[in-house]
Design a protein around this nucleic acid. Sequence first.
RNA 1: GGAGAGGUGGCCGAGUGGUCGAAGGCACCAGAUUGCUAAUCUGGCAUACGGGAAACCGUAUCGAGGGUUCGAAUCCCUCCCUCUCCGCCA
Length: 426
Amino acid sequence: MIDIRLARERPDWVKAQLAKTGVDGAEVDRLLGCEARRRSLKQELDRMRAERTRESRALGALGPAEREARRAAMRALGERIGALERELAQAEGEFQTLILGLRNIPRPDVPEGGTEADNQVVRSEGAPPQFSFEPRPHWELGERLGIIDFERGVKLAGTRFYVLLGEGARLERALIAWMLDLKTGAQGYTEVWPPLMVNSAAATGTGHLPRFRDTMYRDAEEDFWFIPTAEVPLTNLYRDEIVDVARLPIYLTAYTPCFRREKMSAGRDVRGIKRGHQFDKVEMVKLTRPQDSDRELLGLVEDACEVCRRLGLSFRVVRICSGDLGFASAATYDIEAWAPGLGEWLEVSSCSNCTDFQARRAGIRFRPEKGAKPEFVHTLNGSGLGLPRTLIALLENGQREDGSVVIPEVLRPYMGGKSAIEMPRQ
RNA sequence: GGAGAGGUGGCCGAGUGGUCGAAGGCACCAGAUUGCUAAUCUGGCAUACGGGAAACCGUAUCGAGGGUUCGAAUCCCUCCCUCUCCGCCA
């Protein structure tokens, strides 16, 4: 959530910043109006409670007869306090709804723009492969190789599910193991194996609740939400804690399956493995001091690029414009890998600086120095990478005319030394 | 799932209706002191919100939420969590 004090002190500035993301200034006005009402209610309530405390203590010292005489008046005061408390609770609830529903403020250097079309390609790396034949899409390659089974995925679960088989399953496992080795090795992240279900508090901490409850799967009876990304458990690891400043920055990584309803994307990307209800991802999360987060975002992007680079993929880095930023993000870079079969750039990673937005929601703080007041950390997250789209890029880039697929050098030790996935014998 | 015990400040731990935000201890910070690498003494030391230029003041917070009461850490109800034992299970 945003800093309500900032909004109170510089409402015009906050409105101007949020306007860049498409937020109507009236929303900020509503929030401030509600906050003012809440504050004045609290002030009046504080006065009345102070009176009650004072009088009650005096009563305690009195004899039974006098106490009895004043009881009615005190009771009336208690009832007025109760009424005011209910009123305050309602205002407080409204305020929480509003502030939890308001998105993060973009960093000042984020390019302004309304939609995806205004995103900027920052740089490109790696030449796209040239084919002497028409490159096939991954679903064709996967089915012919017998490593992706769409029909049986539908049989088991439904549309948007698939099954990886044989070398396909092995390749997925190889990618996970290799990526984690890279993250935990040269890149210095600490590996985490978190719960795949989290409670509402955690889902609220990262900004997924309350606004995006429709996008998550949940347990019907208990307060469990299937994680849409490992960002949720990783960022919430230190929820309601004051982390030792000497430990910052904290780098975390985890491989997890991710679960998304994809209701909003009905009809989009229905073919292939680009968008499923369940997918694997290796995620990176950083907790940093506020003054370090801009620099750490660049490092995060670089850590994701390095995965593409070592896989031999052709990729580009895209700076997301203000209007296309995610809810919690103040600055985002996407990394897109070229998929020659699909003929499109695939978002394989999205790296964001969420500044103090999530830290405020989740209560993650640090003490800059001994005796100083705790401040909110900055949180960052990025995919390193999303597995299905990486798999698409590998299959489509590595394909040969006979339908076999070359395995990148770095993955071969994880694939039993194999250098290619060959077509099955008829 | 059943039975029992328990959840109090950074930690340990007292407190069973009234100046209790909460004794005491540990840890921490400041000062004093001692000729020795630490001891002793004194003082300070929760968080959030609101008001105030500030000193400071007010309110809330003793797992969470309700209730009783003039007044609740303390009594009642519901829920959550932890521990022990039993059952069940990968």
